[in-house]
């Protein structure tokens, strides 16, 4: 499905997947916010790769004009190092999701915790 069909070039159009619009959270705004946070994380990651290219060019005593950055081809070890960095970034950004999920590793017993708190505080 292509919205805004009046616009000419493909990049000027809004491409939307035909099919039902999903809503996962109680408010679609939360879905939108998560999409935006994830997109921002991508932008940080892209910047980080660019910074890495600058540093590697500088380490090699080379200039880092835009054409030099564009011409830099990362080899396999550089790709692997960047992938590790991305995993770290993803863990930091989505930490709260992982931690909330970790609470389901064992069945929760909130009643027992409440009882214990009461016992501890009992005179």
């Amino acid at each position: 499905m292509v919205a805004a069909p009046g616009l000419g070039a493909p990049q000027d159009r809004v491409w939307v997947a035909k099919g039902k619009q999903p809503q996962f959270h109680s408010d679609r705004a939360i879905d939108q916010l998560m999409a935006m946070v994830t997109a921002l994380t991508a932008e940080i990651s892209i910047l980080r790769d660019r910074l890495d290219t600058h540093e590697r060019l500088a380490d090699a005593g080379k200039a880092a004009r835009s054409a030099d950055v564009e011409a830099f081809i990362p080899d396999a070890p550089v790709m692997a190092a960047r992938s590790s960095q991305r995993q770290r970034t993803l863990r930091k950004v989505f930490r709260v999701l992982k931690e909330d999920l970790a609470r389901h590793e064992t069945p929760a017993d909130d009643a027992e915790l409440d009882r214990l708190a009461k016992e501890i505080n009992a005179a």
Partner: peptide
């Protein structure tokens, strides 16, 4: 170009991350 491959590799790593570290907790939930 430089930033496009960075973006596409991010998406690839994001998918791996979701599968290994977020989806893996769903069965326990």
């Amino acid at each position: 170009n430089h930033d496009e491959i960075a973006e596409q590799m991010f998406v690839s790593d994001l998918k791996t991350f979701i599968g290994r570290e977020i989806e893996s907790g769903q069965a326990k939930l």
